[in-house]
């Protein structure tokens, strides 16, 4: 009984053959080194303590702002410090210098537009830009840590520019 593909036209057969030939070469090349059995889990397993109990989700979307510290806002797809953000960060720098013992976490946040992964990186840039501003103002870097939430913790759940503008921010939380 004939076993050649029944439904393919000559053109498709040629296309498939070409692709299979191409794949075959690369597959074979890799197979010599490919380990098809899963490697063992990373060795970190035994040295890692169990994760702390998860916090229940809170009702509000925003983390509480550290007292006396203002958010710095950003333009779309940008991590440059705007003039209004300079004023906010300057006030924050003054406050932190006057409260010498307080450490803060600077959260970088984004609006909902764009990929999860890109926005995590963009939020990181925003948090670090705010931190760099404060360090150059004179706040010791050891008092400032950063984290990016990307687009995952919006302050305003809306889908318009008014909401997005609020969500593109560096936010300050007491440590």
């Amino acid at each position: 009984m004939q076993r050649t593909p029944r439904i393919a036209t000559l053109a498709l057969a040629a296309l498939l053959l070409g692709m299979l030939a191409g794949l075959g070469c690369s597959s074979r090349k890799q197979v010599t080194t490919a380990d098809t059995t899963p490697p063992p889990p990373p060795p970190t397993e035994t040295t890692t303590p169990p994760p702390p109990p998860s916090e229940p989700p809170s009702e509000t979307t925003a983390e509480p702002t550290a007292a006396g510290l203002e958010d710095a806002f950003f333009d779309f797809d940008a991590a440059e410090i705007r003039n209004d953000a300079k004023d906010a960060l300057t006030n924050n720098g003054r406050y932190l210098q006057g409260h010498g013992s307080s450490n803060v976490v600077i959260e970088g946040h984004c609006d909902e537009r764009g990929s999860v992964e890109y926005n995590l990186a963009l939020g990181e840039r925003r948090a670090r830009a705010a931190k760099d501003f404060l360090v150059s103002y004179g706040v010791p870097a050891t008092r400032l840590t950063t984290i990016s939430y990307g687009k995952e913790r919006p302050f305003d759940a809306g889908h318009d520019e008014s909401a997005w503008a609020k969500n593109r921010r560096a936010h300050f939380v007491s440590k």
Partner: peptide, 16 residues
């Protein structure tokens, strides 16, 4: 679990 982002994973075709 390095400080900062640890994101956007993609395995190599040989899984290594």
């Amino acid at each position: 679990t390095r400080p900062g982002l640890n994101t956007a994973p993609c395995y190599s075709p040989d899984g290594k």
